[in-house]
Amino acid sequence: MAEITAQGDVDWCSFDLKNQQSEITGEVGTPIYLYLKQNTTENDRTAKIAVTFSDNYTTTLTLTQTAFSVTADYDKAWGEQPEYRENSDYTYKTYYTTLANGYNVRNYSICYDRNRHVSNWVAYPNIKDYWSSHAYQAHNSNGRTDAWAYDDWTTQYMSSYPYYEQIGTNVQPPAIAESDQQYIIRGYGASGYDRGHMLPSASRYSTWTTNAQTFFATNMMPQNSTLNQKIWATLEGKIRGWECRDTLFVVKGTCFKNTKTINNQNGPIAVPSHCWALVLRTRNGNLKKKISDCTADELKAIGFVFTNDAAGAATSIKDAARSVQEIEELSEFKFFRNLSPDAAEAVKSQNNPADWSL
């Protein structure tokens, strides 16, 4: 038997679609359906469901229905998710993939600026399952596909240069027109700038698709070549090394304090003045709790900012360290939206390189 034992002052969930039914019986293996009314309030609400088996074993399940939001498709409980910021030029999108272990998961999310042709930020979970396997053929030993592409391309391995080919399209909604993306198949053609990954290829070696998605134009920024190949790459390696049993949540992005651009066949690509990265995790690495349920003393966060030039390339990781609050002020975005209100200020004000062995 299953029984709804508590759901607050309003009856919003039931075992019957039309009538308010709080109890139901059934057999093990037979689905029981629970119907929910829309939450139109500004607060989350919870229900308790007690399940009793024939041997009198009882367990209680807790169901949480989140508050009403006009951006419901975006407001997911992922720890890396920044706050939604309305702008007619922005497209918010999440790429999904299936890992070598068979799990269908989010790969990364973006806030893409179609006017600048660059993402404002890319947010992703850092878990070893994403890079610990190499279950596909590539032209090198590490699993890097080098499948530079628009984000609606499906690609596969090819034995000769460029070592991949387009075999179709697979548009993950919302669609971003190819004409609104960077044309990056042959690089920028601008001296001193690399196609800089925000989500690094080396963090996504599990399957061909998982890695190929990191070569989408929407994951690229024009990045100073020395910065990209040296200290930024070193930071990326350290971030993978901070992986723990709990998820490490990462956001990387761009800031535009000038109007510099690179010519491109799909229109000018804005060159970031700054490149930054943010990380958030539980302190002991094994709490098995959602970020929203953690107190400030259970979490640690830090950020890093580099100017996108030779001076940035010469900056050490420790000297680049900043608080999340400082990068919010620089970028004008708000990060880690799922921190509890009680913890947010304390966590976002942290800037303790020693906490990260720096």
Results as ranks from 00 to 15, higher is better:
Glu3Thr: 05
Ile4Glu: 05
Gln7Ile: 06
Gly8Arg: 01
Asp9Arg: 09
Cys13Leu: 15
Cys13Gln: 07
Leu17Gln: 07
Asn19Thr: 13
Glu23Val: 06
Gly26Leu: 05
Glu27Gly: 14
Tyr35Thr: 11
Lys37Leu: 15
Gln38Tyr: 11
Thr40His: 10
Glu42Cys: 09
Asp44Cys: 03
Arg45Phe: 01
Ala50Gly: 07
Phe53Thr: 11
Thr58Cys: 12
Leu61Phe: 13
Thr64Gln: 02
Gln65Leu: 12
Phe68Ser: 15
Trp78Thr: 10
Trp78Asn: 15
Gly79Asn: 07
Asn87Tyr: 02
Lys93Glu: 00
Thr94Leu: 02
Thr94Met: 02
Tyr95Thr: 05
Ala100Cys: 03
Ile110Arg: 12
His117Glu: 09
Val118Glu: 03
Ala123Gln: 15
Lys128Arg: 11
Tyr130Asp: 08
Ser141Trp: 14
Arg144Glu: 00
Trp148Asp: 04
Gln156Asn: 14
Tyr157Met: 03
Met158His: 12
Ser160Trp: 02
Tyr163Pro: 01
Tyr164Ile: 02
Glu165Asp: 03
Asn170Ile: 04
Ala175Gly: 00
Ile176Trp: 07
Gln182Leu: 07
Ile184Val: 08
Gly187Ser: 06
Gly187Lys: 09
Tyr193Val: 03
Tyr193Gly: 10
His197Ile: 00
Met198Arg: 14
Leu199Val: 13
Pro200Trp: 00
Ser201His: 11
Tyr205Gly: 02
Tyr205Ser: 06
Thr209Ser: 13
Asn211Pro: 01
Phe215Thr: 03
Phe216Asn: 07
Ala217Gln: 07
Thr218Leu: 08
Thr218Asp: 08
Asn219Val: 05
Met220Ile: 13
Met220Gly: 04
Met220Cys: 14
Met221Ser: 10
Met221Tyr: 04
Gln223Met: 11
Gln229Asn: 06
Gln229Arg: 15
Ile231Leu: 05
Leu235Trp: 15
Leu235Gln: 09
Trp242Gln: 12
Arg245Thr: 09
Asp246Pro: 02
Leu248Ser: 02
Phe249Met: 10
Val250Phe: 04
Phe256Arg: 14
Thr261Tyr: 13
Asn263Ile: 02
Asn264Phe: 12
Ile269Phe: 13
Ala270His: 12
Ser273Tyr: 02
Cys275Trp: 09
Ala277Asp: 15
Asn286Trp: 09
Asn286Phe: 13
Leu287Val: 03
Lys289Phe: 01
Lys290Asn: 13
Ile291Lys: 05
Cys294Lys: 04
Thr295Arg: 00
Thr295Val: 05
Ala296Leu: 00
Asp297Asn: 08
Asp297Trp: 00
Glu298Thr: 00
Leu299Trp: 01
Lys300Gln: 03
Ala301Met: 04
Gly303Ala: 11
Phe304Arg: 06
Asp309Trp: 12
Asp309Met: 08
Ser323Gly: 10
Glu328Ile: 05
Glu329Phe: 04
Ser331Leu: 14
Arg337Glu: 10
Arg337Val: 03
Ser340Leu: 00
Pro341Lys: 03
Asp342Phe: 00
Asp342Ile: 01
Glu345Phe: 02
Ala346Leu: 05
Lys348Leu: 00
Gln350Val: 01
Asp355Pro: 14
Trp356Leu: 10
